[in-house]
Structure formats: structure tokens, C-alpha cells
Design a protein around this nucleic acid. Sequence first.
DNA 1: CTATGTGAACAGCTTCACAGCG
DNA 2: CGCTGTGAAGCTGTTCACATAG
Lengths: 223, 223
Amino acid sequence: MQPRKRITKVESIPLPAVRRLSLYLRQLESFADQNRKMVSSRQLGEVLGLSDAQVRKDLAYFGQFGHSGIGYRVAELIQRVRSILGTDRMSSVLLVGAGNLGRALVAFRGFQKRGFELVAVVDKDPQKVGQVADGPNRLKIHPASDMPALVRRYTIRVGILAVPASAAQQVAEEMVAAGIRAVLNFAPVALKVPPNVSVASVDLAIHLEQLSFELISANQAEG
Amino acid sequence: MQPRKRITKVESIPLPAVRRLSLYLRQLESFADQNRKMVSSRQLGEVLGLSDAQVRKDLAYFGQFGHSGIGYRVAELIQRVRSILGTDRMSSVLLVGAGNLGRALVAFRGFQKRGFELVAVVDKDPQKVGQVADGPNRLKIHPASDMPALVRRYTIRVGILAVPASAAQQVAEEMVAAGIRAVLNFAPVALKVPPNVSVASVDLAIHLEQLSFELISANQAEG
DNA sequence: CTATGTGAACAGCTTCACAGCG
DNA sequence: CGCTGTGAAGCTGTTCACATAG
């Protein structure tokens, strides 16, 4: 009964294309900061290490944003891409876990500029609850049991999971139960979540291992 | 003159396969902790959300590690994968930048277990130099100018770049000049490095944007 | 003449399905 | 039998090359 393809004109956008959209946005914003008005697919691709065809095709999946013979208007394209990614409006974000990493994330100023606002911090440890986690706006640390109320009050859909690996799966389930629909996971475990919840994982050890492998390959290549 | 293919049996390993190798290793270690002795490709794939065929093919790119009718011996496979990734021996790692993120990384205990040892920290800020950055082993913060000497002394090839975006490109070049061959980059910029240097980037905003996009797609899908 | 948008060709990755081995 | 390892098939993503628009 399940139709194989969407009826709407989605036409299967490659997942890598969506990832690159974020890269384009970042570079476009950098161009805008330098007062650059126009950019061609070739120029945009060059700084990011991609082919011009790749850039054009990626953007074309989402609409016709370019101008023949001219290229893309930087400001216009920024608006379009932000709207596609849903970062043209601010999203509220909840941070779970106020350890070393958690506090570094609170202090991180990069979220705000890109459409995400950290509105609440929770931690299980009663010693930490009530403390102030500093950052762009000072945030009090709430007990984990407040999660459902916080999610409702601020209509939060995105949560950052920064707790030890041993607690991650259980905390993730609590987050989902509280209404979180997307989780940025820093714990080195494969989270099991319902299919209507998205997870993105950041795993430092894995990145280091990839680099290690590349080093070995490079060494072997040169003999 | 350059032969198109390696003479050895490399036969072009898919990049995604290498990335998954790290996932396999993590899961295998978790199995080992639970005293699990054997595992089949189906079981390993299941917990990671991959097909059994995928797991078998990935592992087969690197050799014949399985046993017909039985599966894979956990301990044996861990050794093999570590050796492939080059994490069967400890690698020395240099951290550049002792801000909030840098200090969180120093405190992070996950590196040690996976074959990476943070052996030195440097920072440009004279105020920070000389301070002790705590962590598994207490490390003094060195001035940036010490980088070449530190890299030589500890034979460091891997560096972690945790400085503000505005300084990242220049600092990356200093790292490369000092002898670093692989960079784990936390600054939200596309680093330009020589072809013999590897870069892996961790960009929180990009992950959040991906999640945001998935949320939008999910909403549209259900109407 | 320049640079986009896009079908068509190509390459790369994943899944299938089964021979072969313990 | 059960499970691996692997050609072959199938699918997804990228590159090519050109018609089209300003």
C-alpha cells in the first residue's frame, strides 16, 4: 500500500546535496561580509573544493536561483538557502548535560548567528542544578525532571545531548518523551530512537580514526 | 608515468566503508565489554542500522576476517580493525587553542582509550601560557612559537585546531609548517592546506542545520 | 560571450543472491 | 545448516556537455 515514490515533486534529493547546502550558506555569508554581490557556481565551488557542475546541480534541486550569464546574487541566495534549511527563523534549543563539554557549548557563540538559540540547560546532578551556566545569555541549570515543562514552554524541538555514554540512551528516550524531535548527540553510542526523531552524531574519536587511516594510506602511497 | 591503479590489491575502497569501520570498532568494543565472543554480520549491522551484506562487504575490503558458518571473533576483529585504522599504537596529538572548547577537549577522556594521547597544548594568548590545562595528565600551556619544537620532540602528526574562525587559516598553516600532517578542525571555515595534509572538520552549526532540514521535511511529509 | 539548468553518460556504492566452507 | 565472501545487478550520486537565456 505504501507508494514507492512521493507524489509531490520531491524527485529524490541526494542527501550529500543537503549537507553541502550548509557549506554553501557558510561561504555565501562570508562573501556577503566582504560585500560581494554576485557569485558564480565556479567561484563558489572553487573555495569549497567542489566542481561548478556540482554546485549548480545541488542548488537546482531546490529551485532556480541563478541568473543566466551572471551567476547568483549572494544576498538572494542566502535568503533562499536559509529558508530551505529552516534557519530563517530562530529555533529554540535545549542542552542536556552541563559537564565540561556542555559548558563549552553554552559559551559557544556560533549558534545564535545561524538561527539556533540555546534557551535552557538541564542536568541530572543536584549539585549542578541552580548554578548559572554562563554564555551569551546567562542560563540557570534546571533539574532533568523539568524537561517536559521546558520543552512545552519554549516549544523546543531540537536538543543537544552532552552526557556520558553510559547514560546517553536513557536520556535520549527522556528527551523524546518530552517532545524533542531532533537530537544532536555527542555521546559515542548509536542511539536508538523512533523513526519520527532525527539524530546527528558528533564523534571526535571517529574523526581522529579517519585521519589516522588517511595518514597510513598516504605513507603507503609514497612508499 | 603514474600508474592509474595501485599494483597491490587495494582495488579502490569506498570512502564510506572506511567511515563505517570506526563504527564497527566502537560496537565491537562494546560487545567485548559485555564478554561477547562471536558476532555475525547480521548482528553487528542490526545495532548500527546497516544491512548484513554491507557489513560483510566493508570488512572484506580489508581482508578475510570471518569464519564460515560461525561469524567473526570479536577480539580478533577488534585487533584487525585497530591495525587497519592505525590505532593499535598510540598517536601523539597536539591541541592548539585553550579556550572553552579547547579546555573541554583536554578534560575529555575518550581519546586515550581509542589510541590518541594529548601530549601538548599551545595558545597564542600570553595570559594563558604557563597555566595548567587539567585533564587525564596535567598539561602546561605552551606559547604558539613552541609548536615546531613540540612537534619534533613528541613526533606529533595529528593536531586539533580549536581557535576562533578568524585565526583558523593562519594557525593551520603554522601547524603544517611545524610538521603536522592531519588536522581536526573545529573552526567553521574551509581550510586550505597542501595535498599531503588531511583535514577533518567538526561543525556544530552544520549538524544543527541538517537536523532543522530533516524536521521540515518530516513535517511536510505528514502534511 | 558568459554562466545557468539539465538530460545523458558515467562512476561509485549498495544490495542481491549464491557458491563455498566449516 | 549457518554464515562468510563475492561477482553481478541495481541504484544513487557526480560529471559531462550542451541548449538556453540574458
